[in-house]
């Protein structure tokens, strides 16, 4: 038994495939590609496939990871092309390799966001956004499974930068927590809605760029 990992892009139309549907889709993709994934034992066998981190519906990513088990060693170099050929539109497998690092080591994510302001003034918004996220604390009200609570999202934002692309669009580049106190990037917008409504974009879309782990000094390394 060998555990392999694929890295894939999920974008465009595929951004709207939910996590549950993605699992079903991946299962079928492997069957179409003729790659026999190991199944769990038991009454209702299911394929052994595990995703690193679920992605919100509508968000894109160029660094999704999924593990699967095969009975025998395989030539991983052909798999990206072979799997991509039978994917729905918008999913591209970029790499395949034996899985070594553990998903729980993933501690930070780099995300890119596009904030759209229908009223324009992106340059001013960009500067104001920077000041807002420079505040020492950003306490927002959030609903979790355990109920509603106030919490400071600032420790979950390691880096954040804004840039006006044109009069209506500000691009956001941020490194946000994925391990302890994970942050859904949508909460960056919730923070604006709650604390600086004038800065809330009319539309925001996010894309995951990279997954990171940290060493003992806290330095970032790309998770493989």
């Amino acid at each position: 038994m060998i555990k392999y990992r694929i890295k894939f892009i999920k974008e465009g139309k595929a951004a709207y495939i939910s996590h549950l549907d993605l699992m079903r889709t991946m299962h079928r993709v492997f069957i179409r590609a003729g790659v026999r994934v190991r199944h769990s034992e038991g009454f209702n066998p299911h394929p052994k496939m595990v995703f690193a981190m679920p992605l919100s519906v509508g968000a894109e990513s160029e660094c999704e990871l999924m593990d699967f088990e095969l009975d025998n060693e395989t030539d991983t170099s052909v798999l990206p092309q072979k799997l991509t050929a039978v994917m729905p539109e918008g999913i591209t497998v970029t790499e395949c390799y034996a899985a070594e690092e553990k998903f729980k080591e993933i501690s930070w994510l780099r995300v890119y966001g596009r904030f759209e302001y229908d009223g324009g003034g992106a340059a001013d918004k960009s500067a104001a956004l920077k000041s807002f996220f420079d505040l020492p604390q950003i306490v927002i009200h959030r609903k979790t499974k355990r109920g509603a609570a106030d919490s400071d999202i600032k420790p979950s934002v390691r880096e954040i930068a804004f840039e006006a692309c044109d009069a209506y669009t500000v691009s956001v580049s941020a490194v946000i927590a994925a391990g302890d106190r994970p942050l859904n990037p949508e909460l960056l917008v919730s923070a604006l809605e709650q604390l600086a409504l004038e800065l809330k974009p009319d539309f925001a879309k996010f894309r995951r760029i990279a997954m990171y782990k940290t060493d003992e000094n806290g330095a970032l390394f790309e998770f493989k």
Partner: peptide, 26 residues
């Protein structure tokens, strides 16, 4: 994708119904 559609889709139930792009579409 239509920019207007891109704004709507995250708000509706089961948006994958409205995008196309499935495997074997022509």
């Amino acid at each position: 994708m239509d920019r207007r559609l891109e704004r709507i889709l995250p708000r509706v139930q089961k948006p994958a119904r409205y995008t196309g792009g499935e495997y074997n579409q022509i």
